[in-house]
Design a protein around this nucleic acid. Structure first.
Length: 585
DNA sequence: CTAGGGTTAG
């Protein structure tokens, strides 16, 4: 299970890196010679089936197989569709198959053939790797047809990529295909989960227009009610509930749960108990997840005592809190600073045989570090490692950051070094924490060598010109003569953005506003979206230098990316009204 | 076979 997950996440990050990093391919649609007959007529060597098996073994056992293949099989063109088909049949690792396709296409300068693409694309959909499927489409120019497309839409919605999903869904409907009821409901719930109430309403009006509402009323109304709640318009959700109840329709329980959660958050407890009564009356009995909503709502509101009261009453009445309930209690109590309470539930949870998941472990450890309880944080980590649960990048990062926060640099360094031995991948967070710490401690040499290593690992985007990059780093007091191997990023599937942001920030700090701007623009060109904070730092820096033109360039990009509110308000005092008006249009 | 929670940071 854990292994499956890690390969999924490699797919998720890796393939988007792949799209950026390699030379553009000739796409099917733009290739003038791309008729079907062309591929069949390509000569294929006699023993290609055997070779496919051998190549399969090589790719499975060696990390860097490209060079091996080229030297061992100089006369074989591995982009041949017949060979590829055979190879994919044997290769059980989807990630390797995809990497192989990309490599062979760019190495032999071939165009992707539709069959290979369809095969891999469908496999990606089956693995529910929406992000990877999206990159695959971008990379190969493959256009999925009706059946595949519907599954693609489902996959995107389920993966939370609602923007892309909506676009593909539109294409699907425009092609004259009428989506199944299930697809509609996945689409709606996907938007609800992504907190995009606006899209829920768009979908709903499409659904009404297509005339398919009647057969799934409870589900659709539930999604609408939840969307109203998300919108901050609970009364409207409540009104809708009342309306459909009069018609004898009882929405799915999720709608009640959401209404209850929201009324808890706004402290309207009369409504909460009213809703609970309606549920019982309509034979839609509240269960542990309903009470979970109540407790979570209370805790979000920092009503710790009230939450404890409800929780204890639940137990008295014979409800059994499950692991989600415990996780929520622990994370929420940590958040409001009741670490002792969280710790108590941590023990209770474990004594009942539930194992905390990664997030819960992290928040618990983090909370302990925050109150400077290094001893207990370490204890929890050891306990979890003993159960084989502490072996992830995220937990190691939490430990490293926590130890650094508590000035335990040596211990943090020890954990950092332990990671590769235990087979845990280091990522930008692991490096960044230590690089910053060494930097602020004045251990520039150590910090620099670490930064160099991070670059070597491909944790920085090599998209920009190498010389420029080295120059930038020099300016912010960085490394000399760094090398950025593209393959590393491709192979490891690392997400490079945070170090880019670090560079932007570093340049700002040193007052190199224009260079910082160039760097950020470069990031955007590579399809990387900087966080609000980075935008803010840069704009502040530009505004200080009175660099109005550059500010507008950045502002323009921000509006394209989706301007975050906080940044906009930050800018207003810096510009004259007339100019701001110009930008807003 | 299932709702419900949550994401490390100079």
């Amino acid at each position: 299970m854990a292994r499956a997950h890690s390969s999924m996440s490699i797919l998720r990050y890796g393939s988007s890196a792949l799209v950026r990093l390699t030379a553009p391919l000739r796409f099917l649609s733009t290739d003038p010679g791309g008729d079907d007959g062309k591929f069949q007529s390509k000569p294929i060597w006699d023993n290609y089936q055997e070779i496919a098996k051998r190549v399969c073994d090589i790719t499975r056992t060696r990390a860097r197989w490209e060079q091996t293949l080229v030297t061992e099989f100089p006369s074989c063109d591995f982009s041949n569709p017949l060979f590829l088909h055979e190879f994919f049949k044997h290769q059980s690792n989807l990630l390797i198959s995809i990497r192989f396709l990309y490599w062979s296409l760019s190495y032999y300068g071939a165009s992707p053939d539709p069959d290979s693409c369809k095969f891999l694309f469908d496999a990606l959909l089956k693995a529910k790797a929406g992000n990877a499927a999206k990159s695959f489409v971008a990379r190969t120019g493959f256009t999925p047809q009706a059946g595949s497309l519907e599954q693609y839409v489902t996959c995107l919605f389920e993966g939370g990529l609602v923007g892309d999903a909506m676009e593909q869904f539109r294409l699907l409907k425009e092609s004259g295909f009428s989506p199944r009821a299930k697809t509609w409901s996945i689409a709606l719930s996907g938007c609800v989960k992504a907190r995009r109430s606006d899209l829920v309403f768009v979908l709903y009006s499409d659904l009404v227009a297509s005339g398919g509402v009647s057969d799934m009323g409870e589900e659709v109304t539930a999604h609408l009610i939840r969307a109203f709640c998300l919108d901050g318009n609970v009364p409207r959700g409540y009104k809708l509930l009342r309306l459909v109840l009069e018609d004898g329709l009882v929405p799915q329980k999720a709608a009640f749960d959401k209404l209850i959660a929201t009324y808890c958050e706004i402290r309207n407890f009369n409504r909460v108990s009213e809703l609970l009564h309606i549920m019982i009356e309509k034979k839609c009995a509240p269960n542990i997840s309903t009470y979970h909503a109540v407790i979570n709502g209370l805790l979000k509101n920092r009503e710790g005592d009230e939450a404890l009261r409800v929780f204890n009453e639940l137990k008295d009445r014979g409800y059994c809190p499950d692991s989600v309930m415990y996780s929520t209690m622990i994370t929420r109590f940590c958040k409001i600073g009741w670490v002792g309470e969280a710790r108590k539930f941590w023990f209770e949870m474990i004594s009942k045989g539930f194992l905390p998941d990664e997030y819960t472990i992290c928040t618990m450890i983090q909370a302990l570090f925050k109150i400077r309880n290094v001893k207990d944080a370490n204890k929890i980590f050891d306990e979890m490692s003993g159960k084989g649960l502490g072996l992830s990048t995220m937990i190691y990062n939490t430990m490293i950051c926590g130890l650094i926060l508590n000035k335990k640099i040596e211990e943090a360094w020890k954990m950092f070094q332990e990671m590769p031995h235990k087979g845990i991948a280091r990522d930008f967070v692991s490096y960044r924490a230590l690089i910053w710490r060494f930097g602020t401690m004045g251990k520039i040499r150590k910090g620099k060598s670490l930064l160099r290593e991070a670059i070597g690992q491909g944790l920085v985007s090599p998209s920009s010109d190498h010389a420029t990059f080295v120059g930038m780093l020099r300016k912010m007091g960085g490394v000399k003569g760094s090398k950025v191997p593209v393959d590393c990023v491709e192979n490891e599937g690392l997400n490079p953005w945070p170090l880019d942001e670090l560079i932007v920030k570093g340049l700002c700090k040193k007052g190199f506003a224009a260079e910082a701007k160039d760097w950020l623009v470069n990031m955007l060109k590579c399809g990387l979206t900087p966080r609000d904070k980075t935008f803010r730092t840069l704009l502040q820096c530009l505004a200080q230098g009175n660099s109005m033109n550059n500010s507008f360039v950045v502002l323009g990009f921000m509006l394209k990316v989706g301007c975050p509110e906080g940044v906009r308000s930050l800018l207003i005092p810096n510009f004259r009204e007339g100019q701001l008006g110009l930008v807003e249009t």
